[in-house]
Design a protein around this nucleic acid. Sequence first.
DNA 1: CCAGACGTTGTT
DNA 2: GTCTGG
DNA 3: CCAGACGTTGTT
DNA 4: GTCTGG
Length: 234
Amino acid sequence: MCGRFVLKESAEEVGAFFETDLTGEGIPLPSWNISPTQQIAAVVESVKDSDTPKRRLEAARWSLVPGWSKELTLKFPTFNARTEDIMSKATWKPAVKAKRALIPASGYFEWRTDAQGKKHPNYIHDPSGELLAFAGLYSWWADPTKQPDDESRWVLTATILTSPAVPHLAEIHDRNPVPLPRDLWQWWLDPLTEGDQSMVDAAVAAAIPVASELEFFEVAPIRGNGPELIEPVS
DNA sequence: CCAGACGTTGTT
DNA sequence: GTCTGG
DNA sequence: CCAGACGTTGTT
DNA sequence: GTCTGG
């Protein structure tokens, strides 16, 4: 679930909605067809070159690469992280503790498989058109082929958390991302709080009312990139 | 202990 | 780096 | 997640 | 059918 999504606002609009102090460059927006390993927008908070944490909108590679990896391209998928047993996975554990992020999305795609095994893409979104804030994790990966003093060796990578689907979304899929309500954003992002399984469980629980409000409709096959990808089909 | 993996989705 | 399987 | 590729030898 | 790239 959640292997494809939409962010059709500009970086400026996204930064304003998430009240970020800084809006980084290099986020390819808008996009109606964001797939794993592409650049996504990530809201993060950390103490960087200052005393107090700053909230930033950054570009990140969608597929978290843990610090110990020698390669940017992993042999296993990391674009989603299952919340149920997240602390038991070496890849996620350090990020749950202190590298939590919000991933802005206008909506996402889900493929429902019908009785004939045919797949039907659906666009899932907030009925009022508000941006969604998926709970996510991030990791700074240092490219070992670059010099230690080369700032460009640092690559921000990120993943989106998933949970069992809320009842009405289970109709098209058994998993869904974890959309956090605005009143939990600061709590989730706070880098001074050490995250654990109970924090992730609380985030999943808080996301249920948000996910329960989402609406969806079938769309045409997802090809190319443009507003037409989120036009309803009969 | 070391060697080798480190993960998800979906489908059967 | 850390966890799991043998 | 889906879409698209999926391969080699030898010669230029 | 299965792997890779986006």
